[in-house]
């Protein structure tokens, strides 16, 4: 468990070395130590306690801040790292960490890889079966169930959502037919793109799917609390028949 979430790394290539996988885990731990909003010694904690001057931020922190700013702009303000007045970059760090890990493994020559942190995934090449990776989308109402099966390669996928059961939730705006969002799954060129846009799209509620539709390299599958799914035009090409 890193960042409180399960991590899975799989390298299919027969040349896979244990130390490469261990190095990725070690990278994730370092990222967690720096960006955790909890840990007493994390850089984020020091910033929030006012113990670190702006000029003394690490290079990696400055990079994350720049990425977060860019994302805020790209999502019409639906993405933020300021939570109740505190700085919390978690919304950008997960996708960034997975994507950096996948790039590192690519540089080492691996062609068939997946890296996952807490349901967000970067996929490359093929699985051990020799075919594209088969990825299930979890049913937000029945978490041991899959409601869509996708066939993916060389892309990232991320899901934002909540497992609050729909029948307990009342939408005072739309009335009886509550159609608020249970989850939205976004597929992008990489997991960094998928993750940050899934986060922002989820915050947009029902408009989130239209926002993804307007983005050229993103596709999405959104599940509403009345157990319907809405999906972008290009999404079907990923669905396994």
């Amino acid at each position: 468990m890193i960042m409180g979430m399960p991590v899975i790394i799989e390298i299919v290539d027969i040349t896979a070395k244990d130390e490469d996988i261990e190095e990725i885990f070690s990278d994730f731990r370092k990222i967690d130590e720096r960006f955790s909003p909890y840990k007493e010694t994390s850089e984020v904690m020091l910033i929030n306690r006012g113990k670190l001057a702006r000029g003394d931020y690490s290079q990696e922190m400055n990079k994350i801040i720049a990425l977060a700013e860019e994302t805020k702009h790209a999502t019409n303000g639906f993405f933020t790292t300021t939570i109740r007045g505190l700085f919390d970059p978690s919304g950008i760090v997960k996708g960034y960490a997975i994507w950096e890990a996948a790039k590192k493994l690519e540089k080492r020559g691996y062609e068939n890889v997946f890296v996952e942190i807490g349901g967000d995934i970067q996929i490359k090449g093929v699985s051990s079966s020799g075919s594209k990776w088969v990825v299930g989308i979890r049913n937000p109402f029945q978490t041991d169930e899959i409601i869509k099966v996708l066939s993916l390669t060389n892309c990232g996928i991320a899901t934002s959502g909540t497992y609050l059961r729909g029948s307990h939730i009342y939408n005072p705006v739309s009335g009886v037919n509550a159609t608020d969002i249970a989850s939205i799954t976004v597929i992008g060129k990489n997991v960094y793109e998928a993750d940050r846009f899934a986060t922002a799209a989820f915050a947009m509620g029902e408009n989130g799917i239209s926002f993804i539709q307007s983005k050229q390299y993103l596709e999405a599958y959104m599940i509403t609390n009345n157990e319907r799914a809405y999906f972008t035009e290009g999404f079907s090409k990923f669905v396994q028949m």
Binding site: M5, E116, G136, N139, V149
Partner: peptide
């Protein structure tokens, strides 16, 4: 619900 063997599952955490 789908019955299929999958390599990975994407879901909110």
């Amino acid at each position: 619900a789908q019955n299929a063997q999958v390599n990975i599952i994407s879901g909110a955490s």
